[in-house]
Amino acid sequence: MKKKTVFLVVTLVLVVGAYVGYKYLYKDHRNIAEETAVFNGSAEEIQGQFASGQEELLNQTVIVTGSVSQVEGTSITLDDKVQCVFAETMEVAIGTEIKVKGRCIGYDDLFEIVKLDQSQLIN
């Protein structure tokens, strides 16, 4: 009887341990769509922050508003200041005012733009 209990406990610990370990190693990616944005503002505003060396928004979820200035495959550029990369090919007319939620991956000195990935359009 006692042996059986020990066996059960050991098995349980092993199973739970394996499950926790697996969950740790293969945890899910961040879900940007469901995260709360820490910044909500215009493309100009966020670009201004990075251009002046403030990089607090790096790797944060942000919401950016602006007018479409370029569409290149899966990416849309807002006001020549923020480039948003989407999962699928985008078809939006130049000049449309849009709001995008995405993860800020940093500042590109070559084009002087802020880049977002895992973007999605929000209304």
């Binding site: 740790y24 190693l25 293969y26 945890k27 899910d28 990616h29 961040r30 790096l58 790797n59 990369v85 993860r103 991956i105 940093g106 590109d108 000195d109 070559l110 880049k115 990935d117």
Partner: peptide
Amino acid sequence: ASLALIQGFRFKVALMEEHFN
């Protein structure tokens, strides 16, 4: 000239991406 943002590299395994960064 070319510039790549390190945070922009996506891995299949989330933990690997975290360690990479």
